[in-house]
Design a protein around this nucleic acid. Sequence first.
DNA 1: GACAACCTGACC
DNA 2: GGTCAGGTTGTC
Length: 270
Amino acid sequence: MPELPEVETIRRTLARHLPGRRIDGLEVRLPKLLRPEPRTFREKVLHRIFGEPRRQGKILILPLDGLALLVHFRLTGQLVFLDTCSPEPPHTHLLFFLDEARLAYADLRQFGWLEVIEEKELVSHPVLSSLGPEPFSLSAEEFHQRLCRHRRGLKALLLDQRFLAGLGNIYVDESLFRAALHPERPANTLSPEEASNLLHVIREVLCRAIETGGSSVRNYVDGEGREGSFQLEHLVYGRRGEPCPRCGSHIVYKRVASRGTYFCPRCQKG
DNA sequence: GACAACCTGACC
DNA sequence: GGTCAGGTTGTC
């Protein structure tokens, strides 16, 4: 589920509640989500106090004085702060007890994971250190140069977290539509202007998605259990057969890079 | 590159 | 019954 805007929204909403709270207890219902194994995990996090949440790509980083709790939501993970009386979400697999409050990790498909590491291991962590730059942290020139090194299609490349960190299926389709670029267009065929424009629309889409609290297509909610509304501004994602907002042709659905892909065959030239 | 694997649930 | 799903990883 969560791509960069959703994880960023979760980060921001949790930042209102977590910093300064201590973990007093832990209830593990699905051990396979934890690294290291639950015994060590519990030993490490117990009695620690949360710091200011951070994010790298789609990974949420929760500092815990000296430690870091990494959370990857994959497709259906949720991390929700619960007041005394709020009910826990369905498919809750892990509960942190924080004084009167709780923090629930729920995950319908059970693909997500939580890992505790030492803060000093952050720089060398295999997942984090393999991430490419974020769309906000590289120049148009650098982006164009990186694109030129690959002959893969744009969709496949933009989904690759080693190339660029944070985009997923929704935001790649929405960005390519807005940039009028075909998802199968070889990356090394973009002109400097096309590359610069693509980076520009990626940033616009991500910023607007963050402003609107992310896309709640299926079951995404933020750290307070609330849905986002960027799905109302999707121009192609999930709109198979509907008229293209730019030219009126039918939006096509096709498997590209093994992912369901929505695009306008007329506006988005290959 | 394509595909299966990891899971549960919604929808046709 | 089959297909699809905001992701990633490992296999041919």
